[in-house]
């Protein structure tokens, strides 16, 4: 039992960090970033290259992942999404763009890094084994780091000038613009931050689960699930959604083990019922 909860918390911390990036981009731009999972994979491969191949310290690898993805995110916003949003009659058109960028990243990742599963040496050796809970130390470190990043993100959004501007933008774009917020600039920063978060999680998790070029799509779907549970465009919702999904996955894998691979089926079914009762998730704004 304790083991199940511990696993759930560990999964939840990672998931929440993934969902945060997706929800941030959605809140600011009203863009559903299909390429989020691919950004995660890219971050993972960059960490793999820097830490696993070049042998630099892990912190450098994480920084490299985050920084590269932030630059990519900023460029994507400036040259792709902003243009399409301006020219298109319907804002859904950004979804085609997002899906196309997801395919594009898939292709780039495949060309640059190949299709093999890649892993890196453990960052910390040894296993924590007390009170009936068994967790390898590296998972503890990664889980703790994820929680630190989440806390830092929340504090940044709450207390910094940039964070305040972004929150205003998410609340009401036009009003924020009228109050003198530089909408274009903060959209770009927000997109860059969302992408950076995806890259950082990818970098963190490459030390545990490794990375391969095919997992981008499934990661995106998981991120969508969390955002739906918590409500799109809300920071608190993304965190809650992440922990709830992590916990459900952990419990489901234990309880439903004898029925075969049906955990995600059960989660999807539960989600459908839940959404028909609360269409906006736990904390979502009506109609995002």
């Amino acid at each position: 039992m304790e083991q199940v909860i511990a696993n759930g918390l560990y999964l939840g911390a990672q998931y929440a960090l993934i969902a945060l990036g997706l929800t941030l981009i959605f809140a600011l731009m009203n863009v559903l970033n299909f390429a989020h999972g691919q950004m995660y994979v890219l971050g993972g491969f960059i960490s793999y290259t820097v830490y696993g191949q070049l042998g630099l310290p892990f912190v450098v690898a994480l920084l490299a992942s985050g920084a590269t993805l932030a630059v990519i995110g900023a460029l994507m916003e400036k040259f792709l999404f902003r243009t399409v949003i301006r020219r298109s009659h319907r804002e859904e058109s950004t979804m085609l763009l997002a899906a196309a960028t997801a395919f594009f990243f898939d292709a780039v990742i495949l060309l640059l890094f190949g299709e093999k599963q890649r892993g890196v040496p453990k960052i910390v050796k040894g296993v924590f084994n007390e009170a009936g809970i068994i967790i390898p130390y590296d998972r503890l470190v990664v889980g703790a780091l994820a929680i630190v990043f989440i806390a830092a993100f929340v504090l940044y959004m709450q207390y910094s000038r940039v964070g305040r501007a972004m929150r205003a933008l998410a609340q009401d774009r036009v009003a924020a613009q009228l109050m003198g917020v530089r909408v274009d600039r903060y959209s770009m920063i927000g997109f860059a931050m969302g992408a950076m978060l995806a890259g950082v999680v990818g970098g963190l998790l490459v030390t545990i689960t490794g990375v391969n070029s095919g997992i981008g799509g499934p990661i995106s779907i998981k991120a969508f699930l969390m955002v739906m549970i918590g409500g799109a465009g809300v920071v608190g919702g993304a965190i809650a959604g992440g922990f709830i999904l992590g916990m459900m996955e952990s419990v489901g894998l234990t309880v439903l083990r004898e029925y075969g691979d049906v955990t995600y089926l059960a989660i999807f079914a539960a989600l459908m019922v839940f959404l028909s009762i609360r269409p906006n998730g736990l904390m979502g704004k009506p109609w995002g």
Binding site: M95, I221, L225, A232, L265, A269, M272, L275, N280
Partner: peptide
């Protein structure tokens, strides 16, 4: 699910495809 709109509907239908496969 048709009560949902925008990205919510998009995401729910996306998971519907996964549900069908599973």
């Amino acid at each position: 699910i048709l009560r949902l709109r925008g990205v919510y509907f998009a995401m729910v239908t996306l998971t519907l495809t996964e549900v069908a496969r599973l």
